[in-house]
Simulated assay, not measured.
Amino acid sequence: MPIINTAIHLKDLPVPPPEKTGWPWTEGTECLPDLMPDGRKWPRISIVTPSYNYGQFIEETIRSVLLQGYPNLEYIIIDGGSTDNTVEIIQKYENYLTYWVSELDEGQTDAINKGYLYCTGDIFAWINADDAYTKSALQMVSKYYLKGYTFIAGSSLTLYVDGSTGIVNSVPCDFGRYLKFWIYCALPQVSVFVAKKISDNCFPLDKSLYYLMDYQFFLRVLSQRPKSAYTNEIWSKFRFHGKNKTGGYNSEGMEEFYQVALAESKKLPPIRRQIFAMYVKDFVVLHPLILNRLSLTPKEIIQALKLRPTIGQWTIFWKMLFKSIINLAK
């Protein structure tokens, strides 16, 4: 039987590779007692990892989940039939997992959907196979949940390939603001936790989504007006290794924004929905202008205004036009 509801100690896990030191390799987390001070069980936290050919990263992910010192944890890994060493690594830790499988699927979103079916906890999150939690992250999340919060968003440390780092803090937002994807509302997915009674109303996610399943998920969560907590506590490490989907969406990524935003905007009142649809259509025209603003002539920008007069309500349009005129005069 898989070991569940038991905080795992460093000595319980397989010995890490000799070149690996520090958290979560040679350092663990002090475990919480089996029960809370009032004798109740700690809230159960269900974590899902979708995985495919990330054998170079997934062991750190697994250990960072298992070594949280958290007594009521479910950990599910759904692998899409990896052909590298991913399955071998998962098998090293299978006695500590609630469930895992390696089989062909229809992509990351499909894997998250499949993993969610095995979640029975009070709190839900997913962590990708190239990310990791920081020490005691789940212990801190549970404390927010016990205060009544049902949407809990922390911060994330970004690790870049050149060795530099950055921090992404969660920005407080509501459904209407987050819906406007052209306004950057940071929600580092790996550091966001949701009460399962809320997330139950969000699944299944659209498995055709390649980039923006987290955007769809958070919109569905925020539409329920959860009691939200935002903190600058760093609960995760996001590794930017150059092959991530996150960052600089191509035209297909922008199409997903339009698709998801318009679909989820149906939760708005009718008039607001129509206004939002107009904004989205405006941005379809504005986005290529923004990308190419340094090379566009005033004539080209004005031509876009003729095609879509409502883009004239956007301040950024006039800024681009004035800058193009100044550049032409130089």
Score class of each variant (00 low, 15 high):
Leu321Cys: 06
Gly253Leu: 03
Tyr75Asp: 01
Lys11Ala: 14
Thr86Gln: 11
Ser136Ala: 14
Thr165Gly: 02
Val171Ile: 15
Thr134Pro: 00
Tyr210Thr: 10
Cys173Arg: 13
Val168Thr: 09
Leu307Thr: 11
Gln303Cys: 13
Trp314Tyr: 12
Ala111His: 00
Met254Trp: 09
Ala195Ser: 13
Ala137Gln: 00
Lys11Asn: 08
Ser136Cys: 13
Val284His: 02
Leu291Thr: 13
Ser265Thr: 01
Gln216Val: 00
Leu296Lys: 09
Leu289Lys: 05
Tyr178Gln: 02
Leu32Pro: 10
Pro2Trp: 05
Ser156Met: 06
Ala229Trp: 00
Gln216Cys: 02
Thr120Gln: 15
Ile76Cys: 01
Ile234Ala: 09
Ser142Ala: 14
Glu264Cys: 02
Gly154Asp: 04
Pro226Ile: 08
Leu209Trp: 04
Glu30Ile: 15
Gly115Cys: 08
Val15Glu: 15
Thr297Phe: 04
Lys147Pro: 03
Gly253Ala: 12
Gln108Arg: 07
Leu205Met: 11
Met140Pro: 04
Asp162Trp: 11
Leu289Glu: 01
Leu307Ala: 15
Pro24Thr: 12
Glu264Gln: 08
Met278Thr: 15
Ala263Val: 06
Lys11Leu: 04
Pro17Asn: 13
Met278Glu: 13
Thr6Phe: 01
Val260Phe: 07
Gln313Ile: 09
Gln303Lys: 14
Ala132Ile: 04
Phe57Tyr: 15
Lys20Val: 05
Gly28Ile: 02
Asp162Ala: 08
Lys207Phe: 03
Thr120Trp: 00
Ala132Tyr: 05
Phe124Trp: 13
Cys185Thr: 07
Leu32Phe: 14
Ser251Arg: 13
Leu307Met: 12
Val194Gly: 00
Leu97Asn: 00
Leu289Gln: 09
Lys319Asp: 07
Ser251Phe: 05
Lys266Ala: 13
Ser265Ile: 06
Arg63Pro: 10
Ile275Phe: 14
Arg63Asp: 12
Glu19Tyr: 14
Tyr258Asp: 12
